[in-house]
């Protein structure tokens, strides 16, 4: 009887862990060969190979930077959200960050505009 109970418990544990693994989002794709990574305290870790991230679980989102927390064999790293694709359920679109509209530089020697990010404080 004890053996049967132990086997049942083992099976339940395995099934639960499988179910949990299935619900945990993972990194499904990477656009470049390497990705810039940061430690949890936002210290730069340099570039890590894309293969280190593929299929690794996403542990969450860093509130301060909006970066993804990815659990890799070498530890938890933060990467830019747009640098990878994940199996996370598509969330509702977040509000775009405030950027100034590009203005044409009237001077022929001036550089072209591009969007300039970081609107002044208070203007989101």
């Amino acid at each position: 009887m004890k053996k049967i109970l132990s086997l049942g418990l083992l099976c339940t544990t395995i099934l639960l862990s499988q179910a949990q693994a299935a619900s945990t989002p993972t990194v499904s794709g990477v656009f470049e060969k390497t990705v810039h990574a940061f430690a949890e305290n936002h210290a730069p870790l340099g570039q890590i190979p894309a293969s280190d991230l593929l299929n690794q679980p996403v542990a969450g989102i860093d509130e301060e930077t909006g970066f993804l927390k990815v659990q890799t064999p070498k530890g938890l790293v933060l990467v830019a959200r747009a640098a990878v694709t994940t199996t996370m359920t598509a969330a509702a679109p977040r509000e775009t960050s405030c950027s100034y509209i590009g203005t044409l530089a009237a001077s022929g020697t001036g550089s072209s505009s591009g969007f300039a990010s970081n609107c002044k404080a208070g203007a989101r």
């Binding site: 747009a82 509702a92 679109p93 977040r94 509000e95 775009t96 960050s97 405030c98 950027s99 509209i101 590009g102 203005t103 044409l104 530089a105 009237a106 001077s107 001036g110 505009s113 969007f115 989101r124």
Partner: peptide
């Protein structure tokens, strides 16, 4: 003058903004 700038006429969106909602 550099200051006399004008915005682009056509609607211009950064590629990174395509998946984000508007301001």
């Amino acid at each position: 003058d550099y200051e006399v700038g004008h915005a682009y006429y056509p609607l211009t969106i950064g590629a990174h903004q395509l998946g984000e909602r508007g301001l």
